[in-house]
């Protein structure tokens, strides 16, 4: 299962579709404030693009795209971004994850909440994307060399 596919049609289609899926994922993540979308959906779409490449061009060839040994680290980084936003809010004088007390002076509290939500969703996107890729790699025994 981890090898390259034998059909050239599937390989070319996968190579062409994966960047488009990931572009839509980034759009859904950044459009989450104004329409249906957000961190979870964008992260799942980004992971879907990576997994399509893993299935079509083979796990060894797609390591240059997203390396299997770095995904678990990136998942931890996503969780740390989320919790770090909350701790910065504590240092600014508010409660845990209370974005109105982030140490940014020139913004109103309502717009600080806007950017706090954006940071938190960045952490969610990174964590969900790399977490799903990690589970796939573990099940299919992609090498951790």
């Amino acid at each position: 299962m981890t090898g390259q596919t034998h059909s050239p049609i599937i390989e070319v289609a996968g190579r062409g579709l994966a960047p488009i899926i990931q572009l839509i994922g980034i759009y859904v993540f950044f459009h989450g404030h104004y329409g249906p979308g957000g961190g979870f959906q964008g992260g799942v779409l980004l992971a879907a693009g990576v997994l399509l490449l893993r299935m079509t061009v083979g796990a060894e060839n797609s390591q240059a795209h997203v390396a299997a040994k770095r995904t678990l680290t990136n998942c931890a980084i996503g969780a740390v971004i989320f919790v770090g936003t909350g701790i910065v809010a504590i240092l600014g004088g508010g409660y845990f994850l209370d974005y109105a007390h982030l140490p940014v002076q020139w913004l109103e509290p309502a717009y600080m909440r806007y950017y706090g939500i954006l940071f938190v969703e960045l952490g969610i996107t990174l964590g969900v994307m790399t977490g799903l890729i990690t589970i796939y790699d573990d099940i299919l025994e992609v090498d951790y060399a």
Binding site: G32, H33, Y99, A110, G116
Partner: peptide
């Protein structure tokens, strides 16, 4: 919208 200036309510409830 009053609290976070974000039109998507699901996003506000989720992250705030």
């Amino acid at each position: 919208y009053k609290d976070a200036k974000t039109p998507n309510m699901v996003c506000v409830v989720l992250a705030d």
